[in-house]
Computed example of a mutant assay.
Amino acid sequence: MFKILIIEDDTKMREIILENIRRWGFEGYGITDFDNAFKDFINYDPHLVLLDINLPSYDGFYWCGKIREVSKVPIIFISSRNTNMDIIMAINMGGDDFIQKPFSLDVLMAKINALLRRTYDYISSEVNLIEHNDVILNLKDSTVSYKNTKSELTKNEFKILYMLMKDKGVIVSRDSIMRGLWEDENFVDDNTLTVNINRLRKKLEDLGLESFIQTKKGQGYVIL
């Protein structure tokens, strides 16, 4: 089921859109805490975003820029602002379409359906981001980012971080990690795992993340 995130300050408008997209068989979520809009985006991991320009704290252009730092998810701006400069800004910041308020719900749904069709014909609609304490692991390009910095991970580094972030708060044993890294009969021995863990920690430290991966002696590793 496609998930649609609505970043809209007008409560009545937000609820009308939510009701309509659910009637079409989509899942919907409307943001109400606009200071944490980016974190909500990461946690919800939508297939499409409806984004107003006039919002509390930061405007829609700002949030569009933040989203584009980590995702190519389709974004439709919905706004009462209709100058050429507003539309140009919306598209230049990474928006895929612009609908002026007031608009027909039928037109909105037609645009949503068309954009979803074009975007996901050949792209998996599975979750592609994992977030924890502002650390974002991108499952599509094997990168990890924190605030405004990003680092590319090797295949093994990515798998280790994925296993730990997926089971955050749970101690993952060295044996479990080594089994996860065992592919094509190329066994990863204990020393190889230590080397990969140390390299991964160094990359995380370079991003400003000290002690993100914690060692539990005799048990394994954990991210809290």
Rank of each mutant, 00 (worst) to 15 (best):
Y146S: 12
G218A: 02
M85T: 06
N54S: 11
G30Y: 10
L204G: 00
E126M: 03
K202S: 14
V49A: 06
T11V: 15
A90K: 06
L153R: 13
G169C: 04
E131P: 01
I31D: 12
F187L: 14
E69R: 08
V73Q: 13
V170P: 00
R174M: 12
M1A: 14
E15W: 07
H132G: 04
N54M: 13
L139N: 10
L200Y: 03
D134M: 04
G208W: 08
S57L: 05
I7Y: 02
L50C: 01
D184N: 14
D35S: 12
I177T: 03
L108D: 09
N113G: 08
L164E: 13
S71D: 14
D45W: 01
D96K: 09
R118V: 06
N54E: 14
A90I: 00
G60Q: 02
I31C: 09
F34Y: 07
I7M: 02
W182P: 03
I75C: 05
F61G: 04
S176T: 14
D206K: 08
L129P: 01
F98V: 01
N43V: 10
R174Y: 11
E131D: 06
E131H: 08
K101M: 10
G220E: 05
I7K: 00
E205L: 11
P102C: 03
T154N: 11
F41N: 04
N54I: 07
I75V: 12
V70N: 10
L204H: 02
M85F: 06
T32Y: 14
L137I: 06
S57D: 13
E185V: 02
D106G: 07
F34S: 08
K150V: 15
S104L: 09
R68G: 07
T149R: 15
S151R: 02
F158T: 00
F34R: 05
N20M: 09
D9A: 13
K72A: 06
S176D: 15
D141C: 01
K147R: 14
G28D: 04
N156F: 09
D40F: 02
S211H: 14
A90S: 09
D190Y: 08
N196M: 10
S124H: 06
I171C: 00
N54D: 13
V49E: 00
L204A: 03
P46T: 04
G220L: 00
H47A: 13
M85H: 08
G94V: 04
D96E: 14
M85L: 13
L48N: 10
Q219D: 11
G65I: 03
V135G: 07
Y62I: 03
Y120G: 01
F77V: 05
G208Y: 12
N36W: 09
M89W: 11
D33W: 05
A114P: 02
E27C: 05
S71H: 07
I197M: 09
D167A: 14
E183R: 03
E205V: 10
D33I: 06
L18A: 12
L139V: 08
V172L: 01
D121T: 11
F77H: 02
S211L: 11
Y44N: 08
D97K: 01
G208D: 15
K150N: 13
D121A: 10
D35Q: 10
E8Q: 07
D45I: 04
Y122T: 08
T154I: 04
N54V: 09
R118L: 11
R174A: 13
Y146C: 09
R23I: 10
I99M: 10
T32P: 09
E126R: 05
L108A: 05
E15S: 12
I87W: 10
I53F: 05
T194C: 11
N196T: 04
D96Q: 12
